[in-house]
């Protein structure tokens, strides 16, 4: 079944997901990061939809709808508003320069595939080749959180990581139970709002969103 059309499309979308993850890693502009996040959400929703269609799992339709509503529309909109209000449209300077980050990212992808191969061979699902990609995009998002200096980029990295996790769940086990997925979606939404509030507080305190200011909070 992996060779069927739907399988091919899922694989294509998975590749797209990974590509977007790399794009986020190399992107310097905050607004583009948000746009990429929305696109990643769209790719995720599309792949969920295809899996739902080809395996006739009705709850995956809800999941796809939820993804579209939340990750393609609501959260990017909230982030846009945040960026407007905080006036942080300019570049985010990375801590580590971009080519180095990209090289580290490639190493992570190889690592993730090496890790996922033995698991994928046991799997019988439609999308078994995609587990490595899902794991790679989780790790890449994590890497982005480490490499960026501005707090807002870290929140985007966190949300992208969550996308990768959801993709792993869809591809490996046809999705988590709907209750769990609803819970996670709500968590992510709440986290976004809480981060938003934090941003205001951080800026009020330090006049900047640069997290290096928070080193002052360390106890000596």
């Amino acid at each position: 079944m992996g060779g069927s059309v739907s399988g091919q499309i899922v694989n294509l979308l998975a590749a797209l997901l990974l590509l977007i993850a790399f794009a986020m890693l190399s992107q310097r502009r905050v607004l583009s990061l948000v746009r990429l996040l929305a696109w990643q959400g769209a790719a995720l929703a599309a792949s969920t939809l295809i899996v739902a269609h080809s395996t006739a799992q009705p709850h995956l339709y809800y999941s796809a709808a939820l993804t579209v509503a939340l990750k393609v529309i609501l959260i990017p909109w909230v982030l846009h508003r945040l960026i407007d209000r905080l006036d942080v449209r300019w570049d985010v300077e990375p801590l580590i320069n971009i080519p180095t980050t990209m090289l580290a990212g490639i190493a992570l992808v190889i690592f993730a595939f090496a890790l996922a191969t033995p698991i994928s061979e046991m799997a019988t699902t439609l999308t078994r080749g995609t587990l490595g990609i899902a794991l790679a995009s989780v790790l890449l998002s994590f890497l982005m959180m480490i490499a960026r200096r501005k707090a807002i980029a870290q929140v985007i990295g966190f949300l992208a990581m969550e996308n990768g996790l959801l993709f792993a769940a869809t591809s490996a086990t046809y999705g988590m139970p709907l209750v769990v997925e609803l819970g996670i979606a709500l968590d992510v939404l709440v986290a976004t709002f809480i981060f938003g509030i934090f941003f205001f507080h951080i800026r009020e305190q330090f006049d900047s969103l640069d997290i290096s200011h928070m080193e002052k909070l360390k106890e000596d």
Binding site: L139, M145, I146, R148, E219
Partner: peptide, 13 residues
């Protein structure tokens, strides 16, 4: 304990 979120994230990574 370095006080930098990046370093802490790197630990967990």
């Amino acid at each position: 304990q370095r006080g930098r979120i990046g370093v802490y994230l790197a630990y967990s990574f």
